Amino acid sequence: MAAAKVSEMDPAEAWSVLESEPDAMLVDVRTRPEWAFVGTPDLTGIGKQVILTEWRQFPGMNVNQAFVPALLDQVGTPPKKIFFLCRSGARSMEAAMQTAAELGETTECINVREGFEGDLDQQGHRAHLNGWKARGLAWRQS
């Protein structure tokens, strides 16, 4: 079996595709506490909703073995493109690889490198150097 192929885009590139391609969607694979306390991307301005599905489940951070079925329950028919987002791009790559392996070539799986908060800066803080928030893309907090 061939390895699943996952491409990557930075957040601004992902936003552009999400905005221009009606069938593209964004899946935020972080945990419920991250969504609640750090915020989530906001796609309402382009007429879309972010799909929230944990890849690693809080608090144990074990891989969600039902991730792809849970994702498909929310979206129905797999779209042509799915973007995967986490804090920095690592968990989302794992989720994208698993989804690509299970869905095959019917859906292009794309990791959003840099993630929602991006890399740590010199002070050990995120959301300043890069990532969805630092690039000024739409987001909200509960």
Rank of each mutant, 00 (worst) to 15 (best):
N64R: 02
C109E: 11
I110E: 13
A70M: 11
T77M: 12
Q98I: 00
A2P: 11
I110K: 09
N130F: 08
C86G: 09
I51Q: 05
A95C: 09
E13S: 13
Q123C: 04
P11Y: 07
T77E: 15
D28W: 04
L129E: 13
V27L: 09
M25I: 13
S142I: 01
D121H: 12
S142H: 03
G115T: 06
R32M: 01
K81R: 15
V112N: 06
A2T: 05
M97P: 00
V75T: 14
V27P: 07
F83H: 10
V63Q: 13
A100G: 11
E8S: 14
D10N: 15
L43F: 08
H128A: 14
A3M: 08
A12P: 00
V6P: 12
N130M: 12
V17M: 04
T44M: 06
G47Y: 02
L120P: 00
F67T: 03
P79M: 12
K81I: 15
I82Q: 13
A3D: 13
W35E: 04
V63P: 10
L120E: 12
E8Y: 07
L120H: 07
A101M: 12
G136A: 05
W132A: 07
L129P: 02
Q123D: 15
Q141H: 09
A96Q: 08
S88F: 02
H128I: 10
E102H: 05
T44P: 02
G131R: 05
V27D: 06
L43T: 04
I46D: 13
G39K: 04
T99G: 11
V68G: 12
Q49E: 14
K48R: 12
